[in-house]
């Protein structure tokens, strides 16, 4: 009786191991199952989903105009103090003073890509870009000014 148990023990153990070895041998011989992505090489063909949150950017059209009114909704929505908006007063041709952004400062090093600023923006001025290779040698390079120099507010955006 004891011997029977002993032998069935050994048999069961060997069988279970053989099943596992069969599985690994299957993968050893079936190279089409390999899932490695050769990242830096496939950079050209790498497509990230359009919703991927890489960094905050501000869209400019061909006339170098953006849609940011400087309402600071994004600045308030940001949990980390990533965004700092410096406003100035533009003087329109009619001599009216009008609030506009001077600098839209974005601290990439503080950003957690939570998307709250994009959600908060009433004019869709900013969106998330699909870039992800953010490494730089100097931390100062991570502080970015999102509005291009000389850009101004698009017509009709309030």
């Amino acid at each position: 009786m004891f011997l029977k148990e002993y032998i069935s023990d050994v048999y069961g153990a060997v069988k279970s191991m053989a099943i596992g070895m069969k599985r690994t041998l299957y993968y050893f011989t079936h190279h089409q199952e390999i899932i490695t992505q050769q990242y830096p090489d496939n950079r050209d063909t790498l497509v990230l989903p359009e919703r991927f949150r890489g960094e905050v950017v501000m869209a400019h059209d061909e006339k170098n105009e953006h849609r940011c009114t400087g309402c600071t909704a994004c600045e308030l929505a940001c949990p980390n103090g990533t965004i700092k908006i410096i406003t100035k007063f533009d003087i329109s041709p009619e001599g009216k003073k009008k609030k506009a952004i001077d600098k839209f400062i974005y601290h990439l090093e503080l950003c957690t890509m939570c998307n709250l600023c994009i959600e908060a923006c009433p004019t869709n001025a900013i969106h998330m870009a699909q870039t992800f290779e953010h490494s730089v040698f100097d931390r100062a390079q991570l502080t970015k000014v999102l509005n291009k120099p000389g850009s101004k507010l698009q017509e009709g955006v309030e």
Partner: peptide, 15 residues
């Protein structure tokens, strides 16, 4: 997750 929420690990999808 990446496609729908925009991130792979820390999604911040529920509001």
């Amino acid at each position: 997750m990446e496609e729908t929420c925009g991130a792979r690990l820390t999604m911040n999808y529920m509001v």
